[in-house]
Computed example of a mutant assay.
Amino acid sequence: MLEEQQNNPLHGLKLEEMVKELVDFYGWDILDTAMRFNCFHTNPSIASSVKYLRKSEWAREKLEAFYLNRYKRMPRPTEAEREIPPRMRTYAVGITPREPMKLTVESILDSQAKAASSYKAAKAAGRKSRR
């Protein structure tokens, strides 16, 4: 198992350390906008965030995916890999983390608006094809 996890940036990383890294680099406002977790919005603290994330597996996995994709800029998972929790995924030997992605509240909101628009368009196209 250790050999399998050697190329996973989350291996051995404690949840508290991950939250501290993200807060230090991005700040609470960006994490709140990107994640939409109340623990990042109302009186945010490392302790309360870690407590919430330990109780909510879906939220922890969403934060871990954000950490891997935006902060460590690792390759996005394939369709099959999405079924595997981020902590259990591995990367090919030689793939290393890159510089964190620069994010702003505005860039996140733009990205979310584009995703919502694409989703609505795909949903509308799906309704038309069923007729």
Rank of each mutant, 00 (worst) to 15 (best):
S107Y: 05
G12M: 03
T78M: 01
V19E: 15
E79M: 05
M18P: 04
I46Q: 05
S118K: 03
V105G: 14
Q6Y: 08
E81N: 09
R76H: 07
F37L: 15
V93P: 15
N69L: 14
S107M: 08
I95P: 14
G27F: 03
K55A: 06
K72G: 00
M1S: 15
D24Q: 12
A116W: 04
K72Y: 00
L109W: 07
L2A: 13
V105M: 10
M18K: 06
K114M: 01
L53Y: 09
F37I: 08
L13S: 09
L15M: 09
R73S: 01
E83S: 11
L2G: 11
L31I: 05
K102Y: 14
P97F: 04
L22W: 01
P77C: 01
R130F: 10
A92H: 13
N7C: 07
K102G: 14
R76C: 02
E61P: 06
K114Q: 02
E21Q: 08
I30R: 01
K14C: 10
A121T: 10
L13A: 11
K51N: 05
P100L: 05
F37C: 08
S129Q: 12
S49Q: 10
R130E: 10
E17P: 07
R70L: 02
E61Q: 15
P9F: 00
R54Y: 01
E57Q: 06
Q112A: 03
K20M: 11
P85G: 12
R82Y: 13
S49G: 12
K20Y: 11
K55R: 12
Y71E: 00
P85H: 09
F66R: 08
E3G: 10
M18G: 04
Y119N: 04
W58V: 02
K14P: 05
M88G: 13
E16S: 09
A115P: 01
S45Y: 02
L103D: 15
P85I: 09
A65I: 14
Y71S: 00
I95V: 11
F37N: 13
G27E: 07
D24S: 04
D32N: 07
L15R: 11
V93L: 15
I46A: 08
V105A: 15
A47Y: 11
I46N: 08
R82M: 10
A47H: 12
K123P: 00
G27K: 04
Y52D: 12
C39A: 09
W58K: 08
K14R: 10
Y119A: 08
L103M: 15
P44F: 10
E17I: 06
R70K: 04
M101V: 15
M35W: 01
L15S: 05
M1T: 09
I84K: 05
E17G: 10
K120F: 07
E21V: 02
K128V: 12
R76S: 06
M88L: 11
R36Q: 12
S117F: 03
L10I: 06
N43Y: 02
E99G: 06
A113Q: 05
P44R: 12
Y67F: 09
I95N: 13
G94Q: 11
K55Q: 10
L2D: 13
Y71G: 00
G12H: 02
L68C: 02
A116I: 06
Q6L: 10
V23R: 08
L2I: 13
Q5N: 11
V23M: 01
A113M: 05
T33Y: 02
S48C: 08
V93N: 14
A65N: 11
N8V: 01
N8W: 07
G27W: 02
R82K: 13
A116Y: 07
Y91C: 05
Y52E: 14
